[in-house]
Each structure stands twice: as structure tokens, then as C-alpha cells.
Simulated assay, not measured.
Amino acid sequence: MYFLSQELFFPPVEEASPEGVIAIGGDLSSERLILAYRSGIFPWFNDDEPILWWAPPERMVLFFEDLKISKSMRNVLNQNKFKVTFNTAFREVITNCKKIKRKDQPDTWITDEMVEAYCQLNKLGFAKSVEVWENEELVGGLYGIDLGHIFCGESMFSKVSNASKVAFIHLAKQLELANYKLLDCQVYNEHLASLGCVEIEREDFMIILNQ
């Protein structure tokens, strides 16, 4: 495991621990964050921890042809009860992702420092959001890092049923139309699996990332 200094550097992802931690420390500067994502690495840590950088041995991704939209979800989409926008309320989205209560999680990993760091990335055009509105109220959304051929999803939130799924599905369809390779979802969870995401080996992810 590598302890970062002020130097802008990450070791090869193959040097990560069995759990996927590849480095500790450093900062959340825009330059370091962009280098991290371009290197297949992302930050994930709690408020009382040093910055931890991850390159897990398996990566949860969506190949767009595998997108699963259930019959009930198709009905929701066909009702047009939600309005979806892209990159119009980034700070509101990441703030909601930070505040939303999640099952089996006592607190959030999105620190105040991370909010400001990703808002700066948004200003630079790297971090982007998807917003879901109901009656002019922001009820769901997600944000992530846009690498031009891969979108690295970071977090999503939902204040009403299905709102985050609507954001995810609209993003997936937009990325597919723009000929992106995949939507990176980082680590496994059942919600993502239900939408068609699968785990692939880190080596395979890196091949696609470096194309």
C-alpha cells in the first residue's frame, strides 16, 4: 500500500491490497482526482479516516446492452411523471446524496471536503449530474465523473420511489447513444445488479479504460 505525498502519483492498480486499497493520504485536488479516475482509482473513506484510494479486484459495471428495465419500471417511465435534466443542479444533487439516509449505513462517506472537491470538478467539466424532478421538486438524481468514453458513477439518491432508477436509466441511454464503452458503478450491490450491472475483473476494466 502506498502513502501519498504532495507528488501527483498513483502506483499501478495491480499493487492494491486484496480488498482493493491502493493508497492512503494525499488530497482531493482536482488534478489528483482526475489522475485517479483516469488510472482506475477512486476515493472512498469516512469523515474520521485519512483519504483512502481504491482499485477493487472486481469492478461493478453496466454494459448498455445488459440494461434491465422491469415491466413496472417501464410503466413508470411511460407515465412521464418525472422530468429528467442533465447537469443543471450538481451541488443540489451531491448534497442530497450526502444527506440521504441509507439502509444499514449509520452515516455518509460523502464528506464536506468531497462535496467542495466534486463541485470544483463540475466547474471544470469532469463531474456531472442527472436530476429527476417531480412537480418542480428535485426528488432524485446521481452524479459521477465523465471520462469521455466511460462514466464513473459515484452516488445516487431518491426521495420518492423509483426516482434514482429513472436517473440511472436515462443516463445509461444517453451514454449508449454517445457511444460510451460502459457505466462504471465501482462496487457490487443488489440494486445495481437488478438493473443489469455485472462484476468484471479489474484487469478487464483497465483494458477498456485505457482504450
Rank of each mutant, 00 (worst) to 15 (best):
M156A: 06
M206T: 09
L182D: 03
Q211N: 11
G25Y: 01
K128R: 08
L28P: 00
Y37N: 00
E201S: 14
G153F: 03
E201K: 15
P56C: 08
Y180N: 03
K123C: 00
Y118G: 00
V198D: 01
C185N: 05
I207M: 11
N80R: 09
A23H: 01
V187N: 07
V198R: 03
G144T: 09
W133C: 15
V21G: 03
I69N: 06
L177R: 07
I150Q: 02
I51V: 07
F168V: 07
E201V: 12
F63S: 05
S194I: 11
V84G: 11
M73D: 05
I51M: 03
R74G: 10
P12W: 13
G40T: 10
V61G: 07
S72F: 15
M156P: 04
A193V: 09
A23K: 00
D66C: 09
I100E: 15
P43C: 08
W54D: 01
S70P: 02
K68G: 11
L209Y: 01
E65G: 13
M1Q: 07
R38G: 07
L52R: 02
E136Y: 15
E7Y: 02
C152M: 05
C197S: 13
K165R: 05
E116K: 12
E154L: 06
E7T: 06
P57T: 07
T95Y: 06
L124G: 03
D107A: 15
Q79R: 14
F10Q: 00
L192M: 12
F86G: 03
L183H: 01
V21N: 02
M60K: 12
G140I: 03
N96E: 11
D112M: 06
M206N: 09
Q120C: 07
G25H: 02
A16K: 10
E201F: 10
C97N: 04
A163N: 04
L192N: 05
A167G: 08
E15K: 03
D146Y: 08
D146L: 05
E65W: 14
N135G: 10
G140H: 03
K165D: 13
L138I: 13
D112S: 09
E137K: 15
A193T: 12
Y188K: 02
Y37D: 00
G25E: 03
F3D: 08
I34Y: 02
C185M: 13
D27F: 00
E113G: 05
N210H: 14
L33I: 01
Q186G: 10
S164Q: 07
P18Y: 06
K165Y: 08
E14H: 14
M73I: 14
M156K: 08
E199Y: 06
V21Y: 03
K83G: 15
H149S: 11
L4C: 01
C197L: 13
L33K: 00
E203L: 15
R91D: 10
D66L: 13
D66Q: 13
K83Y: 13
G141P: 15
W109I: 09
L33E: 00
D104V: 07
N80F: 09
V21C: 08
E190R: 13
I150A: 01
E199R: 08
S155M: 10
F10S: 01
Y188P: 04
N80L: 13
D48L: 12
K103T: 15
L142E: 09
Q174Y: 15
C119R: 00
